[in-house]
Amino acid sequence: MFGEQQRFVLLLIAPAALLLLLFQVVPIVIGANASFRDWALYNPKKTWIGFDHYVAVITDPAFLYVVLPNTFLFMVLSVAGALVAGLALALLLNRPFRGQKLVQTILLVPLMVAPVIAAIMIRWIFNDQFGIVNVVLEAIGLEGQPWLVQRWSAFGIILLTDIWLWTPWFTLLLLAGLQSLPKEPFEAAAIDGTTTWRVFRYLTLPMLRPVIVVCVVIRAIDAFRTFDIVWTLTGGGPGRSTELFSLYAYVHAFLNLDLGRGSAAAIIGGLVILVIGVVLYRLVDRIAKA
């Protein structure tokens, strides 16, 4: 039926394609189908109701004014924070100094920590009664805060946890990028006595552009679907004020037991991120070029 080469090519991707089909494509199609039906977990009538769930989601004030802004704010701040911190650390590790290997190992620690564990650690550190942060604050005469039950402090802590978790990724990939840059331009700049800032601004940054673009796009798409740390740190609370998109879909499907509405939210989120993925790639590329 096929030539020898085509058979080889198809066989190489067949297992991957089959798994992708069964465990991603099929569920997405079934989820799309469920999103058009009255499908409560306690009473799965499965009657066709058209776009009702979609209308319910996009007219839900909680989704429009809390979940969506939270998700975008989180995505932008988390990626920006981890990029700046990761780039700074990569530049630090790129110059030789004593103990550099040890420092590198310590800085990569968050890579190994599960988001759930990170969230548990941070929850304990910011515990309102016994957490070390409040103990220290009270020791120096300031008032301890109930960090995780106030909207913006809780949001800030979630953000901080995420940046802590993902900075090493940027460091690792940007360091690899830095070390593969050609040496000659930097040597020429050093002979001309160029300042550190100008070397960074006009040599390092432009030459690192491709690596930065790839890191930012990958990370932004991942930040959009953040679930673990929010679920473990605040569960979306206080109230629903720190809910992100993944939590919104999960809560509707498995806590409110409305699979139809949860699926509709999941599909809407998927479409949003697809659009963002394309736009982001173009935008970041253009900004980086300027």
Binding site: V25, P27, I221, R225, F227, F245, A266, G269, G270
Partner: peptide
């Protein structure tokens, strides 16, 4: 085609396919 496929599916949030995977 295969590259385009994996590129698109890389973007899909986990919740969008794991949630229906529950009833699959």
């Amino acid at each position: 085609l295969w590259f385009g496929t994996i590129y698109v599916f890389r973007c899909v949030p986990y919740i969008s396919w794991v949630l229906p995977l529950y009833f699959v």
